[in-house]
């Protein structure tokens, strides 16, 4: 045995008598050391961090409210309609075509300035927007499928519906116009020509107001045989237009979206002005009798604003490249 080992053993032995007893007692009493303390602390610290971030999330993006009486809560507070406490925001579902046009970028700040209520916008196809409204997941709708809107008001899902503005649909296609649509007056004739010649046609296929209108036109034109010339793309209006441009096909679009994207597209209007193509927009509130939590009072302010001379004037004077995209009020007869 080396001298070193001997020394070590002596050292160990010397301590043994006293220390060994104390040593094991200490050992049994406390089982977790520093590592265990860390194990405890780690989740606690993480949890605290999580709460900090979470609370930051819920509040940070909310705009500064001119009415501080209400907390920045994500949960809409239920209250009687009469009570005139201003909401911080309401949630509006609208269609992609409305959103893409840019009109809301003018309209909503004007409303915000006047009433201090922010309108938060979710854009979906008309069908999905109507569904969100029926479920009570939003407060107000701005959509364009008049027949469905009137039916749902009848059924009690919505109230205070107004014909707020209109524009029209147009048919766009390649400048060369292989189907010879240019010069036709009736959109049904144009659709028949496309179907007859098998020219590429792109359809939204997404339950939007535009798509619903397109289906009505196919029906009126008596076309029911859709072959590989007919492409149902399942996209918003902007994406559908871009795809149509890439494929040099035809599609039906609202005028607003087309005008706002015109510079980036290789498409022309090939048909417009047919009364069938009128596109009426309606604004309506989710019926508080169906969903008590909706911010009904604030939605009334928004509807009033939209229908007021000021709101209607904003709509009328909104232009892109010198062209009007929307016309105030009601554009069709019942």
């Amino acid at each position: 045995m080396s001298p070193l080992c001997t020394a070590v053993h002596n050292e160990l032995n010397k301590e043994r008598g006293l220390r060994k007893m104390r040593f094991f007692k200490q050992g049994v009493k406390k089982e977790h050391g520093k590592g265990a303390t860390l194990y405890f602390l780690f989740p606690v610290i993480c949890l605290m961090l999580a709460f900090l971030i979470l609370s930051g999330c819920a509040q940070a993006p909310a705009p500064i409210a001119p009415h501080p009486q209400e907390e920045a809560s994500a949960e809409p507070v239920e209250k009687p309609v009469e009570e005139a406490v201003a909401d911080k925001y309401i949630i509006m579902a609208t269609t992609t075509s409305t959103y893409d046009s840019g009109l809301l970028d003018v309209l909503l700040p004007a409303f915000m300035e006047k009433y201090g209520i922010e309108v938060q916008v979710i854009f979906k196809g008309t069908g999905q927007a109507l569904e969100l409204g029926q479920r009570g997941d939003v407060d107000i709708l701005l959509v364009h499928d008049r027949a469905s809107e009137l039916r749902l008001v009848e059924e009690g899902y919505f109230s205070d519906r107004h014909d707020v503005m209109y524009n029209d649909f147009v048919m766009v296609g390649p400048a060369a116009d292989p189907a010879g649509v240019k010069g036709m007056a009736k959109v049904t004739d144009a659709f028949s020509a496309i179907a007859g010649g098998g020219y590429t046609f792109l359809s939204r296929g997404d339950d939007s107001g535009t798509y619903r209108r397109e289906l009505k036109i196919w029906e009126k034109a008596g076309v029911s045989d859709f072959r590989d010339w007919y492409l149902s793309v399942g996209q918003g209006m902007g994406d559908t237009l871009r795809m149509t441009s890439e494929m040099q096909g035809y599609t039906l679009t609202d005028r607003g979206t087309y005008l706002s994207l015109k510079d980036k597209l290789d498409l022309e209007i090939v048909l417009q002005g047919d009364p069938v193509l009128f596109n009426q927009y309606g604004v309506m509130a989710v019926n508080p009798q169906k969903h008590a939590h909706v911010k009904y009072a604030s939605t009334q302010k928004f509807i009033d604003f939209m229908m007021s001379p000021e709101g209607q004037d904003i709509i009328a004077s909104f232009r892109i490249g010198g062209e009007s995209l929307f016309f105030p009020g009601k554009g069709i007869k019942d």
Binding site: V8, G27, K30
Partner: peptide
Amino acid sequence: LKARRFPKEKTQERVEILLAK
């Protein structure tokens, strides 16, 4: 030693002894 809460100031010394061993 840590698991048994052995005094910290003595741990280092013992580790040295054992490593030498």
